[in-house]
Design a protein around this nucleic acid. Structure first.
Lengths: 192, 192
DNA sequence: CCAGAAAAACTAGCAGCGCTAGGAACGAGG
DNA sequence: CCTCGTTCCTAGCGCTGCTAGTTTTTCTGG
């Protein structure tokens, strides 16, 4: 009994090691540098061991994405709760979102750009994702004006996502980011 | 003289053949199916021939992206000009944008998601890109309310891009797309 | 304490990727 | 007709994600 539980503990520990290695490698050198060989070397095991923990490389990315979602949910919640009023809350949330994406680009990619096998807009989606989305929904609720807050939340989320990804891809200049963000928020928090 | 010009013509023809093959293969099976080997087979030449036309695979993707930009610019212009008023113009533009992205996903990916070596937000950017962007700027001009139309255009562009990419990645449900789009446009075309 | 069974991890290899070096076949000019 | 320069192809390099088969380690029962 004890032997088996020890084995399970060790296994879980190693799995976390793999996920952490993937995340750190991705953050340091980008996802294209994350290969199964380098990952195996990092955790000091042979390649096939990875496949006894994860179905494939995509599953590892998915695990990293899940960690990211959890952390982002916490960031968003903290930002919203620290704000003094409804308008400040939306602004703080948006700023926190953008900051997260800018400071943890690889994590953000795993969550929203790479192809991962995660349920998103369904009840089966990870609780952390619901939590993060809920922060958006709560923040924009005062500005829904009769519309569904969830839909407005998705729309704001998408707008921020577009700003972030186009900026990182060099499609729009980083220079006027603050101005664009202000423009966007002004339109989302305007009176009807 | 004539011989050389004939050769140049044939070369240009073959180059176009490669780009078209890449585009069709990408549209049919996605960019991950576009390999240099399949491309070479499609145009009935050996692999190294591709590299006498393009520096690498990225350059081929870039060429496809350029074609896409040109076509999108035309679509956007037509949509804007056909609209009856300022608000309808913005709506028509947004609808045309989304339609383009949905109907030509591979083309759209090459333009805005894949890493291509194209100048975007600079004067050196391709004319077609300036044209497409200009359509956005013109459409939102009546709603800038003192802000720079170019910045508002970038913001609307980004918002649409976010909606499109999140929808395609399964992050937000396609189901309520029309509603979200309406929400977004209402906020962009509201009075101050 | 040791032999055999079970579990775990390794070596080696497959098929495919982008890309390139070196040699063969071709057409042009003397 | 022969030589030269261009054009194109064959073959191969180093890498990728992933897996079959084997060896090593670990646990169990006598």
């Amino acid at each position: 009994m004890s032997i088996q539980s020890r084995k399970e503990r060790e296994r879980a520990h190693r799995e976390q090691l793999i996920v952490t290695a993937a995340r750190e490698l991705a953050e340091a050198e980008g996802w294209e540098a994350v290969t199964t060989r380098r990952l195996a070397e990092q955790v000091e095991y042979s390649q096939p061991v990875l496949y006894s923990h994860f179905k494939g490389k995509d599953a590892i990315v998915t695990a990293v994405a899940l960690e990211g979602i959890t952390e982002m949910a916490a960031d968003l919640r903290a930002a919203r709760l620290a704000a003094s009023g409804p308008e400040a809350a939306v602004a703080a949330l948006a700023a926190a979102y953008v900051t997260f994406a800018e400071e943890r680009p690889a994590l953000y990619d795993a969550m929203f750009s790479q192809r991962v096998d995660l349920p998103f807009a369904t009840p089966e989606a990870p609780p952390a994702l619901h939590a993060a989305f809920g922060e958006f929904a709560e923040a924009v609720r005062p500005y829904a004006h009769g519309d569904e807050p969830a839909l407005l939340a998705e729309t704001l989320w998408a707008a921020l996502h577009g700003l972030v990804t186009l900026m990182r891809g060099g499609r729009i200049p980083r220079e006027f980011h603050e101005h664009r963000l202000a423009l966007l928020l002004a339109r989302f928090t305007a009176s009807p």
